[in-house]
Design a protein around this nucleic acid. Structure first.
Lengths: 233, 233
DNA sequence: ATATTTGTTAATGTAAGGTTAAAAGTAGGA
DNA sequence: TCCTACTTTTAACCTTACATTAACAAATAT
């Protein structure tokens, strides 16, 4: 099973502690982005699509609470955990007021931190019921359901698509009648652009063409050296 | 709209501490039921419809963890907070494994407790899309009663379901005809996502398929690498 | 012409899922 | 307490699904 790593934003100004914590989390199979202060933290937050934020409270320029407030303005759902050296009651209260999901006092037990992270992310996972509308496409006489990974022609039996077939067709559909650059598919789907992935992609184009033969109004054209076009006549 | 008081089940054997805490919570506008031990706690839990459980870990007859497990069997969603005198790491880890939402060391600051309670209840409130009341499902010719844990085909003899069978089928039913991600079932039901829990889940899928064979319009399809679909034709 | 890109089919290796049985863990009764 | 029935996990073995690579043919560009 292709397991997607959870992405954590870690904002911590102490370079030693920050690095150690980052490495520890990465060793435990999380994808970690480390920011050294509040400013940087916010910038990185806006760029990445995170599953959890771990914020140090005491930081220069912008403290953890202020950062948390800004993050909450952009995203009301993302879990936030605060780290703090002192167990000041006012701080804890303030943290919960800004919508903290949990609170950890340094030094803390790393195993406990892991469990908490797991619990928090799990909690969020159950919330996500998912919105399906952006996964359905009409391609000539075909219906592509990209979430359930099937292609159906004229209400007939659905053809099951493999993950790569599915993503490639979806990408083509997003660019219907237009150029879908080779490079785009390779970087987006294969996450690597070399001779072999490129040949692999050609194999998948052949597979898709076979499926799409059912409707002779639909075809995938090659634009030599550029990419492919999904055309519907 | 009239705001409904949130109902808390407090299970705490120390009479002094328990009473004080109960009074404090009631002063702060919560509806509190106080049980003096694990046994009583479970009885009261079954009777009332609570928004939160606060369980002492160290109790005679039945400790907090055991009680939590029983409660989780009846209700996978309700938030649980543990109280403990000692901050033993093993205890904390055990707590999160049973699905704790938070952890408090005695003596703790009452204001902090209030904030935590507020945060937790709020969290659940946003999660609850109102599927909380859904324990009865029609699946083709089947009726699933998820509260009483049985499945009946065309009004025939009910088939008793084990807790895991029941939860899994319920989760599939909640996503009828749609994808029920592997990860969702693992985090929600097994509370852990690894090779073994994943294989265990496959075993349960096989069991459910056997039950569902009675109606050939109902089937569980696999979406490779993603999860399962309960489809009704 | 010939080097490069693309079309297509087949072979291979690996991972995920299906199924059944045995082992381990639990709860409740005698 | 031990026993029994039941639930869940672990193991084993097999099948299916998938992605990559190889091989060769055809098209296209320089």
């Amino acid at each position: 099973m292709e397991e997607q790593k959870k992405k954590i934003l870690l904002v911590e100004d102490d370079p030693n502690f920050g690095t150690v914590l980052k490495d520890y989390l990465m060793m435990n199979d999380y994808d970690v982005v480390h920011a050294k202060n509040g400013m940087e933290g916010f910038e990185k937050f806006k760029k990445g699509d995170f599953d959890l934020c771990i914020l140090d409270v005491m930081m220069p320029y912008k403290d953890g609470f202020t950062l948390a407030k800004e993050i909450r303005e952009k995203n009301t759902d993302i879990p936030i955990v605060f780290l703090t050296a002192k167990a000041m009651k006012e701080d804890v209260l303030k943290g919960y007021k800004v919508g903290a999901d949990d609170y950890l006092n340094k030094p803390f037990d790393s195993e406990v931190l892991l469990m908490k992270i797991k619990a928090i992310i799990q909690r969020k996972a159950t919330e996500t019921i998912s919105d399906s509308k952006q996964f359905e496409f009409k391609i000539g006489g075909f219906d592509l359901n990209s979430k359930l990974r099937f292609l159906r022609y004229n209400g007939g039996d659905p053809i099951k698509l493999s993950p790569k077939e599915n993503e490639l067709l979806r990408l083509l559909a997003l660019h219907e009648n237009d150029l879908m650059p080779r490079e785009l598919a390779l970087t987006k789907i294969w996450r690597d652009d070399n001779y072999f992935t490129s040949r692999s992609m050609d194999v998948y184009i052949a597979k898709l063409r076979k499926y799409l033969k059912l409707d002779d109004k639909v075809e995938i054209l090659n634009i030599h050296g550029e990419g492919f076009r999904l055309v519907v006549n």
